[in-house]
């Protein structure tokens, strides 16, 4: 499914340009959920932006493919249409564009790129209502402009709402747990777990173990200085929680 091979990437421009990813290799097979943990500055968010194609985050060598398709060669919207979804660490406000309008435009744009028919209005509304109920998102919130005036928790729930509406083939969750209280964390995790399936992969980027109590990863990778320095089963997350990054990093260094 997602395959990164010796990926190197720079961030910034001119004199401020820095190499943040430094030979990162990783494979997440279909049907699996992997977690990436790592200290601040390890390159976690950079990884999510390089994969989704944000301006200023440029892969300089190595490859990144999703089901064999070269991600790095595509525009951000083409990557989305190919099935790549990023739940943003800091979801962005879209003034004047109501959630329903936005999500429908996005779904239809993806479908158009893939050469599929548009989603019908009744199907769309029915699906939005059902998913909204699961995530405690009421109809009023779906009429408001995207993320404008939303609390941190509401923004994160809306990211998961969009993910469930779009049913991506591969989802990256970038610090989705930050800003969530215990109940919201449970709601969000339930949403993510509902999407787990044999043909879908996920990459959960997090600082802390607590999200992984709810979303059980198949594998855990430790990212430091732009590369994966250690990989293991779910127990690695617990070890990190106990020993801290210093302990683990000291061990591999």
């Amino acid at each position: 499914m997602l395959k990164l091979d010796n990926l190197t990437a720079d961030v910034g421009e001119g004199d401020g340009r820095k190499t943040i990813l430094n030979g990162l290799s990783l494979e997440v097979p279909a049907g699996e959920v992997h977690a990436i943990m790592g200290p601040n500055g390890a390159g976690k968010s950079t990884l999510s932006y390089v994969l989704t194609g944000r301006d200023g985050y440029e892969a300089t060598s190595g490859t990144a493919t999703l089901n064999g398709d070269d991600l790095l060669d595509m525009e951000p919207d083409e990557r989305a249409a190919a099935g790549l979804f990023l739940s943003f660490q800091y979801p962005v406000e879209i003034p004047g564009v109501p959630v329903m309008t936005f999500v429908r435009a996005a779904i239809n744009a993806q479908r158009k790129t893939r050469g599929e028919d548009e989603i019908s209005a009744p199907d769309f509304i029915k699906k939005a209502r059902e998913i909204g109920q699961k995530l405690n998102i009421d109809a009023d919130m779906l009429k408001r402009p995207v993320n404008v005036g939303f609390s941190g928790g509401e923004k994160k729930r809306l990211e998961i709402f969009q993910m469930m509406m779009m049913e991506p083939r591969f989802a990256i969750l970038d610090e989705t747990d930050s800003g969530l209280d215990i109940d919201a964390l449970k709601t969000v995790a339930d949403g993510v777990n509902a999407l787990r399936s044999e043909d879908r992969g996920m990459l959960v980027i997090t600082h802390y173990q607590r999200l992984l109590d709810h979303i059980k990863p198949d594998r855990v990778h430790v990212l430091a200085k732009g590369r994966i320095v250690k990989s293991g089963g779910p127990e690695l997350a617990l070890q990190l929680e106990k020993e801290g990054y210093d302990g683990i990093l000291g061990e591999v260094a």
């Binding site: 301006d55 525009e75 003034p95 004047g96 936005f102 779009m166």
Partner: peptide, 29 residues
Amino acid sequence: DEDALFYMQQRGIPKPEARALLTEAFIAE
């Protein structure tokens, strides 16, 4: 807002369309 444009693109909306949608919402007010 470049952040808003990227967010919209990440959800599958091509950049020209994202620009038009944002600008239209801006004017419509």
